[in-house]
Simulated assay, not measured.
Amino acid sequence: MRIVITGASGNVGTALLRRLARRGDTPGEKENGSAAGNGDGSSGRHEIVGICRRPPSGGPPYADARWVALDLAGPAVEAALTPVLDGADAVVHLAWGFQPAHDISYLARLGVDGTRAVVNAAQAAGVPHLVHMSSVGAYSPGPDDDRRVDESWPTGGIDSLAYSRQKVAAERVLDEHERAHPDGTAVARLRPALIVQRDSGSALLRYGVPPYVPAALLRHLPLLPVDRELVVPLVHTSDVADAIVRVLEQRATGPFNLAAEPPVTRDLIAAVLHAWPVHLPRTVLHTVADVAWRLRLQPLDPGWIDLAFAVPLLDCGRARRELGWTPAVTADAALAQVVGGMADSAATTSPALRPRSVPAELAAIARGEPITSRRLP
């Protein structure tokens, strides 16, 4: 297959490149080695083209792809994409932005307009299959109990977070495409829980932790002040990559929920951090985060707190039945991995997953370029 991957250097893209490079490359096969990249975009029996704004310089797993530098938020991106997609058997659309969070118009151009450009270019190039990375954040608030919801749950998102609104808007772009082109590019939509792996540690710190906070401090938190009702779904990045490969191999279409068990609670997070859980009502937590956000003291949009308490738990029965997908990593194990990765500032050679350091972040602020507002985070 010739597979084009947007956002191929990021969290999920890195795991997908690793998954595609496995020897034999059969969905569900245990990892028993890796096929060496040829430096020409060939990975095993697949030809991989990676699209991102800042291509990696090389090394595994990035050497297994041929790279095209392209900002999906830029001008005339659809015209630039079409020749890249020509002859592709499938497009995996992973590209998305989380920062600069104070520049919502840029994030909308990247996430919503970028998705429209990818869909239109895929249709124009005659690509038969598109796999779109949606999110649990596209769903409307979940039921009041811990009941899991399947893919029929409404995708209305929450109004207080731009990320959620934009994920919903991207889903509507796909709806429009499917109505206009019933026999055109077929679409699969993956709606995963929070996606984590150890190597995303530095990126998560950069996007969600104040720049003056050392990573190692995570190992020494005495208290975790969070509302006791917090319950969120989570999944390991490698399991999401495995689901993508299964969708590609089976030419599956439609929506698929992806999450691991057990759901992540406040007490589970506290146990992984070796911290004492303290009940802090979500309204108080939101107010504190909102004030710090407006004063530019921390980079996390307070809408993420609203989302954390609104997202539903996911019924993944369709992925299990139709794809044969079962997560290999439990949610508590994935949480422990990513917390360890954050404490160690884990990273890769990709610019998107580069190492995070306090001096570098503070230097950016001194230059007037905090990550929440600088054009290219």
Rank of each mutant, 00 (worst) to 15 (best):
A289W: 00
A352N: 12
G341L: 01
P210F: 12
A36G: 06
V196E: 05
A108T: 12
Q123A: 15
R296L: 07
V91N: 05
P233S: 10
P83G: 13
V339A: 00
A241E: 08
S202D: 08
S357D: 02
A124H: 07
G340K: 00
A108Y: 07
Y62A: 14
S135P: 05
W67E: 11
D113I: 09
R116F: 01
R246P: 06
A364M: 05
D175Q: 09
P128I: 13
A331T: 03
A95F: 04
P263H: 01
D144I: 11
G87V: 13
Y106V: 06
C52Q: 08
V112S: 12
G341P: 00
V245H: 15
L107C: 03
Y163G: 00
A36I: 06
E151M: 02
P214R: 01
A122I: 09
A310M: 01
Q166A: 07
I371W: 04
H177A: 11
P327S: 08
L307T: 06
E176A: 12
P370V: 07
C52H: 11
P211A: 13
L20I: 10
A319G: 07
R18N: 06
G142N: 03
G142A: 01
L17N: 04
H181K: 07
V136K: 03
A243G: 07
S238N: 04
D242P: 03
S164W: 10
T237L: 01
D150A: 02
L205C: 08
R321M: 01
K30G: 12
V91L: 09
P60N: 09
V213M: 11
P214A: 05
A69F: 01
G341E: 03
A188H: 12
H129G: 13
R320W: 08
T287Y: 08
R66G: 12
T155G: 09
R23N: 06
P377W: 10
L273G: 02
G24R: 02
V264D: 00
D242C: 02
E31P: 00
R321E: 10
L307N: 09
E171Y: 02
V311P: 00
V291M: 09
G44I: 03
A275K: 06
A243P: 02
Q166F: 15
D86R: 14
A65R: 07
L16Y: 08
L110M: 09
Y212W: 14
F309R: 13
H286Q: 05
G41Q: 13
V232G: 00
R198W: 00
G208H: 11
A216T: 13
D40H: 15
N11E: 09
A80D: 06
A188V: 15
W153F: 10
R294M: 04
D290H: 14
H220Y: 14
R367Q: 07
L130C: 12
A108I: 04
L273T: 03
V288G: 11
R22F: 04
S134L: 05
L85T: 13
V173P: 10
W67M: 06
D64R: 15
A188L: 10
R356H: 14
A21Y: 02
L362W: 04
A346V: 09
I244A: 12
P56E: 12
L81G: 04
R147Y: 02
G208F: 15
L70P: 08
R165A: 12
T6M: 14
P302L: 03
T265N: 11
P377D: 11
I244M: 13
F98R: 11
S202M: 10
G303E: 11
A292V: 00
